[in-house]
Design a protein around this nucleic acid. Sequence first.
DNA 1: GCAAAGACTGGAAGCGCTCACAGTTTTCGT
DNA 2: ACGAAAACTGTGAGCGCTTCCAGTCTTTGC
Lengths: 335, 335
Amino acid sequence: MTGARRRRPTMDDVADVAGVSRGTVSRALNGGHHVSGPARAAIDRAVRRTGYVINPHARSLATRRSMSVAFILSEPQDRLFEDPNFNILLHGCTQALAANDITVLLTLAGTPADRARVSRFVTSGHVDGALLVSTHTGSPLVDELVDQQVPVVACGRPAGHEHRISYVASDDRAGARQMVEHLVRRGYRRIGMITGPADTPGGVDRLAGYRDVLGEVDPRLVVAGDYTQASGVAAMERLLAGAPDVDAVFVASDLTAAGALAALRRAGRRVPEDVAVAGFDDSRIAAACDPPLTTIRQPWARISTEMVRLLLRLLDGEENAAMILPTELVVRESA
Amino acid sequence: MTGARRRRPTMDDVADVAGVSRGTVSRALNGGHHVSGPARAAIDRAVRRTGYVINPHARSLATRRSMSVAFILSEPQDRLFEDPNFNILLHGCTQALAANDITVLLTLAGTPADRARVSRFVTSGHVDGALLVSTHTGSPLVDELVDQQVPVVACGRPAGHEHRISYVASDDRAGARQMVEHLVRRGYRRIGMITGPADTPGGVDRLAGYRDVLGEVDPRLVVAGDYTQASGVAAMERLLAGAPDVDAVFVASDLTAAGALAALRRAGRRVPEDVAVAGFDDSRIAAACDPPLTTIRQPWARISTEMVRLLLRLLDGEENAAMILPTELVVRESA
DNA sequence: GCAAAGACTGGAAGCGCTCACAGTTTTCGT
DNA sequence: ACGAAAACTGTGAGCGCTTCCAGTCTTTGC
């Protein structure tokens, strides 16, 4: 239908057809202030007739704004990409930004080499700001971005940079407390924990929450995991070996809890009759477990919208801000 | 450290510092042909000294290439976003494109209103091409993109547009055959199926594969699902009611199979002793099921790299092409 | 009725880059 | 040593848009 690939119409073409100048067209297309009714109508018609679409590169060059932000995934293991919650986050951010006519540029910064690339990318003016997702602490990328004065909002507490960039996080520590208190309330007495990695804020805070409730416990009750399913199997076995009388275990992630469940089944312990299992994240897998996992839900949808809100405010020149969101206890059958 | 936000250095600044002209700097930065060694060295030094980073908007304006492509997610229900395989796809594409210095712009086209936005977005020259992910057939977006002569590669067979755009798909039909043949080989005789939605190529092809092996079966053996877990529960109950002697069931998705598993457990049937259950997708949930699901693995990583390869070829002016990739049978304990 | 304040408009100067072109220098075959 | 070819370089004309500026034309307050 459209025939040969023709030169795309420019603003001048629209101006010609509408019988006004390019400047007027530009004004009409940007809010329409100082444009008369007839002129606006003529321009509208001309836009439709010519099939004009504004050229974002030319516009960005002139305005020095790109109307896009980078979504930086800074995770060496790409582990986040396996996390369904990450989907929700990405989706939520993309949608909230789209509502403001801002596009998301997806950027992977797994390797150190990537980091240089991303840093260049962000400072080139390609984007107006960045959303940073990374679980591990001490990423040098944060320093670089801050140095470049790029507006950045992080997801999760950026350990060591709390006052230098904005961030939105869920209250892991309070969430862990919620869960452990739930276990206590249910009458469990020997409550163990399988932790997350000690170099992630989540890993640290969830353990802290556990300690908030139980204080210094028998060290054999606390074993290390790393958020993976396999680590859950191993950790549970270690826990059963070190403290056979454990009657409940708080696991720092659902996936790891699924591993713990498998280990318990293999050990012939019933859940929750013999040992209760509590997860964290309320990921998709939680409801599919057997028995379905009692877990802590993080408000991912809310996190994404708040991240976007904070970023928009930064773009408006406001100051950095932090935001801690409450978690929710989801009681199913495992505890 | 960097002090007040200063004007970013331009190519002219670099040229001044290096003592050459802007044209020479440009050439040095784009392949470096026809630039003498000393000039190149001086420019390198000047770039480092000034902290110069090329302005992509200016470059895109001049070259009429954006070095970025849109990743269009055209799924009304955002269901794909819950699928871990989608992660792999997005990740794979982003990575493969980054290797070619191409950025991914994430674009959601769930609602019809979004569609217009996306269409404008893509035709504005913001991107050089698009990767299209959508499960449902007959999306008008495809027509629009084809009309606009935008290079597009779809993920999955774009029913009704097979010859108009490039695509990469896994061989769902052959995969379904593989699985049903596996069930037959294991000695199952009353093999039922819970299908996917009839308006998705996957739904259609997997059913076709089932029929390829078993021919026209007792209609009570085939019940409809829609890829959700809930539909798996309902469908399995219907199947047990209509064909109580069923001894195996091929389910069009793992998630649905998890639902079927739950329904069977509730009905007191053991898996696989009483009824075997086979899934499709090898999603994360498959291994976490109890018992772990026998399923069909789709080569998502490969799909993503092939999509990118095809898109790069399109950008080079080559013709549309299709690619069907083989699936893999993953035998676990459920069948 | 008049000046001042606005509303509207066209023109022109960029935004920072690429690329064709013309001019200069070097290389090299003979 | 000479001409042709190749390598190198600077210049200038865009790419398509925004925005400031200086005008013209209406309002409006008094």
